[in-house]
Design a binder for these strands. Structure first.
Length: 403
DNA sequence: AAAAAACCCAACCGCCTTTGG
DNA sequence: GCCAAAGGCGGTTGGGTTTTT
């Protein structure tokens, strides 16, 4: 009998590799509407040629509204280090202490930054297997760890007393849990700010939505690029227009608009210009699409991490899936006010070279038809097709999906 | 300016755990 | 208790980006 674990899906029939914006949108829209009761069934229901696992991962690590993006704060890094000392490579447990951060992200941060930062100190730490919690080590590492935890945070308003002693005292580990939790929450709450930024050297545009919301308790200076590290950032260039563009994309906008220089990898999308609203604690953006507006995205459940039961159960039976999938795309179109198709003129951009500067055409009555996207476009490298979605309020989502 | 090296991170893989019949 | 399916987790990797030579 062909034992061994059955693959979770037929690898030959699923798309792999980076997600494109159309796929992301489908996933977001589907989960917004129906939740994610069954990851394995979800791709088919949502019209995605992806493995269920891949969908889950994409959602959890990237698309969830409450995923916090951007660089880790010193507080978060300290928390990670502390927890790693206590737990080892229990990334998901560590992540659970850092709301908004994913295990994958924490793991990456650890492997790329924190481990290296700590490694010089480790020479005196008997080069222990770092996958093991420090609790298994009869530690004499207090001196070495001390230097790290004394990280200087010059502007930090609150006491940032390191936990060196606590960590040297295994008996206090448990009692630390609450403290750790509090701290991580503090760190997070100070992060829950709308990272609307303007790159001073990139944009001189005038905008009508220029609100910089800054948490007053967050005194640590943030480099501009730190606030941009968002998977799906949104640029607002007029009150009613939302612009989502892809990273490094040279897209021509209104004359006064200038693009941010391609930054380091910010995920499949990033921002060009003007105002950037990180997708992360991006309740403001979700709000834009929420509730009362006819272009509602009905995001509250997702924001709160709750899905109503009836919402989840709309689907579920095979056989109705195709119909349902079509129905939801129709609903989605209705909600978004998607009324048209790809503009003929835009279709032509299919054949433009990558990074070709495409002048967005401010025609709010034409938009992308999601139904048509299902099989064809989602499989394509989108090239430079600009996709326009428009809502009744002229909120325009512009996806220049060049990857 | 070009090439090489280092860095970074999203995504994948496979194993383990949980759940339900 | 057994088995299969699905979810979850941690390790690893591919490839894009940035830095260094």
């Amino acid at each position: 009998m062909g034992k061994g674990r059955a693959p979770c899906c037929d690898k030959t029939k699923v798309k792999r590799g980076p997600w494109n914006p159309a796929e992301d949108l489908k996933l977001i829209a589907f989960i917004q509407k129906y939740g994610h009761e069954n990851w394995r069934a979800l791709p088919k229901q949502a019209g995605l040629l992806r493995c269920g696992k891949s969908c889950r991962l994409r959602w959890i690590n990237y698309l969830r509204p409450d995923v916090k993006r951007g660089n880790f704060t010193p507080e978060e890094e300290e928390t990670i280090i502390r927890l790693h000392r206590a737990m080892g490579n229990k990334w998901s447990k560590i992540a659970s202490r850092l709301p908004g951060r994913t295990d994958n992200e924490i793991k990456n941060v650890w492997n790329t930054h924190l481990k290296k930062r700590l490694s010089p100190k480790k020479t005196s730490e008997s080069s222990t297997d770092e996958s093991k919690p420090e609790s298994t080590i009869t530690s004499t590492s207090s001196s070495s760890s001390q230097s790290f935890f004394s990280i200087e945070r010059p502007n930090s308003p609150k006491s940032t007393t390191p936990y060196t002693n606590e960590f040297c005292d295994q008996a206090e580990q448990l009692s630390m849990e609450d403290k750790i939790e509090q701290d991580s929450e503090k760190a997070v709450s100070s992060e829950l700010l709308i990272g609307m930024t303007e790159d001073p050297k990139e944009s001189s545009a005038s905008f009508s939505c220029e609100s910089n919301i800054v948490n007053s308790s967050q005194n640590v200076a943030q480099k501009p690029e730190e606030t941009l590290a968002s998977p799906l950032s949104v640029s607002i260039y007029t009150v009613e227009t939302i612009n989502i563009v892809n990273s490094g994309q040279k897209v021509a906008h209104k004359p006064e608009q200038q693009l941010a220089s391609p930054s380091s990898y910010l995920g499949p999308y990033d921002v060009g210009h003007i105002l950037e609203i990180p997708w992360e604690p991006d309740y403001e953006f979700w709000k834009l699409l929420d509730d009362d507006s006819p272009g509602s995205f009905q995001s509250k459940e997702v924001q709160l991490g709750e899905f109503s039961a009836n919402q989840n159960m709309i689907l579920g039976e095979e056989g109705v899936q195709d119909g349902e999938a079509r129905k939801w795309t129709n609903d989605f179109e209705n909600e978004f006010g998607v009324v048209g198709e790809i503009k003929e003129s835009n279709k032509d951009h299919n054949f433009l070279p990558k990074n070709y500067a495409v002048e967005p055409q401010m025609d709010h009555t034409k938009a992308f038809n999601f139904d048509d996207m299902t099989e064809a476009e989602s499989e394509l490298d989108f090239g430079s097709i600009p996709l326009w979605l428009s809502s009744p309020q002229n909120t325009t989502l512009y996806f220049n999906t060049d990857q």
